[in-house]
Design a protein around this nucleic acid. Structure first.
Lengths: 220, 220
DNA sequence: CACAAAGTGTAACAGATGTTACACATAGCA
DNA sequence: TGCTATGTGTAACATCTGTTACACTTTGTG
């Protein structure tokens, strides 16, 4: 119930122990069922939406109809807050509920009022948006790597920075392939080659880096 | 360095035609020559940098050493302002001068002070960052299209929305290829095929869309 | 004008990835 | 236990893109 993300309080906590939002804040709360498409790519976004309960999936649809999975968002977290202030303020992605969710809605004018009156709110808003931008930049970097092994290496090295040489990945191959934007059998082929070459080993969802140097060379 | 330091007076047009920044702002100005690498991908960014004179090129270097051209920035514009507030506040790109440039530097604490005291400053900062995020999202979308013809189609359709069926593009083929993240001869091949198929026609840097429907089908 | 530099068209070939198809493994569940 | 759905391994083949190389065109400049 208590979130490990101090940036945003959850709904259950919202009314009683909300330290972030002032008591007089103007807002509304909206509930959705599982598997509802709650925002579409292109929808105008004229308020700040915060996911306060449940989880959603954001999907970017390329114009060719292919899905390029972006990420799963768990409460509590704001939804695409950066776009509230852009000149063309539209949602960049589709947002679909994965379970029953609740969304907090704060009108734009109210957000502006909060920003100017509450320094903490402003800083958190800025930091969050900055982190989002960095996420996108990282995603861009991953996509700009052209070989599948290069993408895998980039991804695994990133994981090993945060964890050790051995770690588990909570995505199956199909999801990983979607994440990388490649075909599933192609990913499987590259993975098995890397195993054969002794660079990594895989056991279910447990990945071990055996040859760190070899992995880096795949980025060349 | 304080703004009342006579050393900086007359350094650029900045001081006389500055309508956005308050008179008591703390800042410094730095000058660079042509073709200097002024920020590196990964550099810590602990201040807001604003390009106030000249132009620079931002390049994202993938870990495999390939360049993925991002954009050319002309003064006046802030440089990667989103990252000032991110948890891992490092530059996401290399920044290289294209000519002699001047850069305004405002320390982070000072930025925070301005944001809280000047609503206009804050709104501009937010809007700018939001637009940047949208730019990145669009870039991500372009890269996620896998075929070269698809990328071309996406790009041309985007142009034709803003302009007509006939428009000019201020990039040569080499730059376009870099923008798309593909090899130059491959781009040339795809372009010439699209011309042969009667979908577009090209004259120097003038592109004309002959078959709008055919172009859209390339996105399938 | 003449020359160099930059940009473009194009071909042959190599290599990587996508597509399709199917067998097998695993996990969850009646 | 057995069944079904989901996930995985892998092969043959088609396609696309990258690489390299070179000729040609255009542009800019002395």
């Amino acid at each position: 119930m208590k979130s490990n993300n101090p940036e945003w309080v959850g709904f259950s906590d919202f009314e009683e122990e909300n330290g972030l939002f002032p008591a007089d804040m103007i807002y509304s709360i909206h509930a959705y069922r599982k598997n509802e498409l709650i925002f579409r790519q292109g929808d105008v976004c004229e308020a700040l939406y915060v996911l306060i309960k449940g989880s959603v999936k954001t999907e970017m649809i390329t114009e060719n109809g292919n899905l390029l999975g972006i990420e799963i968002i768990n409460a509590p977290r704001p939804l695409a807050p950066a776009f509230l202030f852009s000149d063309n303020n539209r949602f960049p992605v589709d947002v679909t509920t994965l379970e029953a969710v609740e969304v907090l809605r704060i009108p734009k004018e109210e957000v502006i009022r909060l920003m100017t009156s509450q320094a903490d709110f402003m800083k958190q808003f800025l930091t969050h948006n900055a982190n989002r931008t960095q996420f996108l930049t990282n995603r861009l970097q991953l996509l700009s790597i052209k070989t599948i092994k290069g993408k895998i290496a980039h991804f695994l090295l990133e994981q090993s920075n945060e964890q050790g040489q051995k770690f588990s990945i909570n995505r199956n191959q199909t999801e990983l392939a979607e994440f990388f934007g490649v075909a599933r059998p192609s990913l499987a082929r590259s993975l098995s080659e890397m195993v054969q070459e002794g660079i990594i080993s895989i056991n279910k969802k447990e990945y071990t880096i055996l040859n760190n140097k070899g992995l880096r060379e795949l980025l060349l």
